[in-house]
Structure formats: structure tokens, C-alpha cells
Amino acid sequence: MTSSKDIRWKQRFENFERSYKRLNKYASGSITNELERAGIIHFFEMTFELAWKVLKDYLEKEGFIVDSPRQAIKQAFQMGLIDDDHIWMEALEKRNMTVHTYDEETAKELTEDIVTSFLPAVRTLYRTLSEEW
């Protein structure tokens, strides 16, 4: 019998999957102008939000209580769902920063972080959760 928590995490995973695939697609190409950087940052924000929420739903399905992105990251790391909690905490910090700050230099730095650090971490989570599907 399928529980509502099982259904919820799978529905959230489908949304996460769509967002991750967009981020992966566009971050894999050349990012040369302000509009492209803004798009990558936006896809990152959406994907990160869905990533921590799918972790929350998955962990709750497993019997854990998760009230924040930090708790979700810490518990996911302890369970082996993510490899590097430091990268995820940095991604959380940067995601929070993007909501309040925008200038060209910050956008360039963040885009580089997304492509080189955060996207590979999200890719690993995607593959891990795909196996759970």
C-alpha cells in the first residue's frame, strides 16, 4: 500500500527532476551574458528549493522530522543521500544571498559556483534519488 508521504516525495521528485534537467541543460552550454547568467541563477534557485524539499519529503517518508533546509541537508548527509554537506550548506547560503543581492560581479561568481560545485552536487542527489524511485 502506498502512503501519502510516499506519493508526496515522488511528486516532488518529478518537479525536482524537471528543474534539475533544465539547469543541467543550460549550465552545460556557454554562459556569456547577463541574461544567460540570470537564467542560470534562477534555475539554480528553483532547483535548490525543490532539492531540499524533496529531501525533506523523502526523509519524512523514512520517519524523520525535518523543519528546515539545514536539517534536511544534515540528515541527508548522515544517510548518505548527499556526499558533501559543506557544498550543500554553501549552496544554501548562496541561494539565500541571491534573493537579496544582484550585481554583475556577484552573478559571474555565483554562476561559476553553480556550474563547478553546486550542479555536480545536485546531479549526485538526482542520481541517488532516481535509484530510490
Rank of each mutant, 00 (worst) to 15 (best):
M1P: 02
T2F: 03
K5H: 07
D6I: 11
I7Q: 06
I7H: 04
W9M: 07
K10W: 04
R12F: 09
E14V: 14
N15S: 09
N15G: 11
F16A: 05
E17S: 15
R18T: 14
S19P: 02
S19G: 12
Y20G: 07
K21Y: 13
R22K: 13
L23Y: 01
N24W: 08
N24E: 14
K25F: 10
Y26D: 03
A27F: 00
S28M: 14
S30T: 08
I31S: 04
T32N: 08
N33R: 15
L35D: 14
E36A: 05
R37M: 02
A38S: 13
G39Y: 01
I40V: 07
F43N: 04
L50C: 12
A51M: 07
W52G: 03
K53P: 05
V54G: 05
D57K: 05
Y58W: 08
L59C: 15
L59P: 02
E62Y: 08
G63S: 12
G63W: 09
G63K: 14
F64G: 04
V66R: 00
D67V: 11
S68Y: 06
S68Q: 09
A72K: 01
A72R: 00
Q75V: 12
Q78R: 14
M79W: 10
L81R: 00
L81K: 06
I82L: 12
D83C: 06
D83W: 04
D83T: 12
I87A: 10
I87M: 02
W88I: 00
E90K: 14
A91S: 06
A91C: 12
A91M: 05
E93C: 08
E93W: 12
R95E: 02
N96S: 14
H100A: 09
T101K: 13
D103H: 09
D103K: 06
D103Q: 11
D103M: 03
E104S: 11
E105S: 13
T106Y: 08
T106S: 07
A107H: 03
A107K: 01
K108P: 03
L110G: 00
L110H: 02
T111Q: 01
T111S: 01
T111N: 01
T111I: 01
E112V: 13
T116R: 13
S117F: 11
F118D: 00
F118N: 02
A121G: 03
V122N: 06
R123A: 11
R123H: 12
T124Y: 14
T124E: 12
Y126D: 11
R127V: 10
R127M: 08
T128L: 09
L129R: 01
L129P: 02
W133A: 12
